[in-house]
Design a binder for these strands. Sequence first.
DNA 1: TTTTTGTAGTTGCTTAAACAACCATTGTTA
DNA 2: TAACAATGGTTGTTTAAGCAACTACAAAAA
Lengths: 148, 148
Amino acid sequence: METIFTTENLYNLLSGRIPSAFNRALLNQFKANGINLTKEQWSILAVLWKKDGCSQQVLADETYRDKPSITRLIDHLEKEGLAERRPDKKDRRLNLIFLTEQGRSLEEGAMKVVDQTVNSAVRDIDPEVIQLVRDTFIRIYNNLETKK
Amino acid sequence: METIFTTENLYNLLSGRIPSAFNRALLNQFKANGINLTKEQWSILAVLWKKDGCSQQVLADETYRDKPSITRLIDHLEKEGLAERRPDKKDRRLNLIFLTEQGRSLEEGAMKVVDQTVNSAVRDIDPEVIQLVRDTFIRIYNNLETKK
DNA sequence: TTTTTGTAGTTGCTTAAACAACCATTGTTA
DNA sequence: TAACAATGGTTGTTTAAGCAACTACAAAAA
């Protein structure tokens, strides 16, 4: 295989430096706007704002986390008063997760900040290039999932 | 601003799903090859293999971590017998970090696994596209650093 | 040369990820 | 329907990130 890339170059691309920087920036913007959320909490809320009342397993699938991680994130959201568990009446194995009024009220402000941060990150970059980057990442993801 | 992207699309690109998948894959490959390293440990060792005897601050800069994170990662590497601290004789503020024989001996095997995993991830993708993705990510990184 | 400023590293705290082991409930099948 | 498998969730453990507060030392400024 002939490429102009060293393993190290590619590793840096794949290993997550940019996402770290992005997540840091997002967190700072939250803080600067008086929104008291970790990026993990926000990622859960982002699902609930669309699918209020879904199960923990759905949250795990949507946010690419395992079940224990969700258990603890929900614990934390409950403690903060942003969401609550309610047992499913039909299937008693399930917890359904509902936003509280407070959890709902964060949506507008948080989404505005995410929007600004995302747009700031990709400013001056050709949308077609962004599209290509996305497509490439999907291919990489599939390559990783389907092993070698 | 007119784009075909929703904030959510872009967020998913920027927030680190692919790196998570990559890091998971790498960890699995380490394990499958009997290499007992976390990805964090490996990322420190990767610097030391090139700059044995550098300071903790250098490790922090090279791996994009803060100083406390490095303190603890080195603690752990010392406990595992892979590296050791030696005070700098000239500047007594500094610890210089040196690989042990055992730490050095991991290089070949680990790099082979990283190499395979990286190549598997980008297989069938045009090198020019990879280059463009890299360049774009560097621009995004700079956008994030120079704030809006 | 004393004071001030900066740099290197550590400790404490909160939050989270990943994995294994586990319990309860539900679904399947023999 | 009784045994077994699958699903949803929790707990325990290890490892790590990120921030603030701190100590020790060095360099620069007064």
